[in-house]
Amino acid sequence: MILLIKYTLLYGTVLSLVAFGGMFSERSGIINIALEGIMVIGGLCGVVVLSLLPATFSPFLAVVITILVAAASGCIYSLLLGFASINLKADQTIGGTALNIMATAIAMIVAKLVNGSESARVLYSNKSFLFKIGTLELNVFLIIAIVALIFAVIFLYKTKTGLRLRSCGEHPQAADSVGINVYKMRYLGVGISGLLGGIGGFAYIVPAVSEWNFEVGVSGFGFLALAVMIFGQWKPLRIFLAALFFGLFRALANISSSTFLGDLNLSSNIYNMMPFIASMIILALTSKRSRAPKAEGIPYDKGSR
């Protein structure tokens, strides 16, 4: 049971961080399908820096630095999406897909370079990221996710900038007519989403294991996060709850063999399928009355009114 809670929180944290990222981007009017790639890049940069730090390095500083590196790299990478879809008015879905493809290639090249061999496995120590309450093992990313949740609620609903950002996702022409810089707001949305996506990728890789093969990327978690975001109706608190729900499904796959579920004799493939099937059923039921930002996916052209 403890194990189930541990894994639920682990995956729930990742999904909520990344889904918050998607939410900021979509609320500003940009569909961020590149979250998967942003996660890979954030995870890669964080892990590589972590593996290069000397063993004697202060654990607290190591945690702070690597998380900042992951966030910054995700943010920079997401600007590529911003540039293509905001300035050049590219198709956002295609641009995002291209970034996903590039991210995996970059990750493989860098990981092999760091290893100096033909394997893309990177080893690191993750002890400093974990702490225990009683017998329950938790990681620092849970705290970050809760902070991100509070930040998202306050920023989106209580600040001037948040209101402006949301208005750019609903009706950018109207926003522009009252003097809001739509391009700037959309860059802000994409930038925050890159930041959170980068941390999310790092959070997916580091706490669970102490070596990572970048050949597998983050196995579809970025896309799962998008489903979480839709299920959460682009609202922070709902997204957080939805993420925990999905996390629970994913956690079942991890503990299936060691608990009573093992007696059912289902293979791990079935459990791996479950979060995806659950999300499909939920999407089918909820999408009819979905409240997506109205202007998402449409490049803003100052000339068209």
Binding site: L88, K89, A90, I94, G95, A98, M102, A105, I109
Partner: peptide
């Protein structure tokens, strides 16, 4: 030659090409 380069460089080139294609309409 895997001693110097990894084969994924080809994938990277493809990725860059699609990224550019996304705004090739431009």
């Amino acid at each position: 030659d895997p001693r110097y380069f990894s084969r994924e460089i080809a994938n990277l080139i493809t990725g860059v090409i699609i990224y550019l294609c996304a705004f090739s309409l431009f």
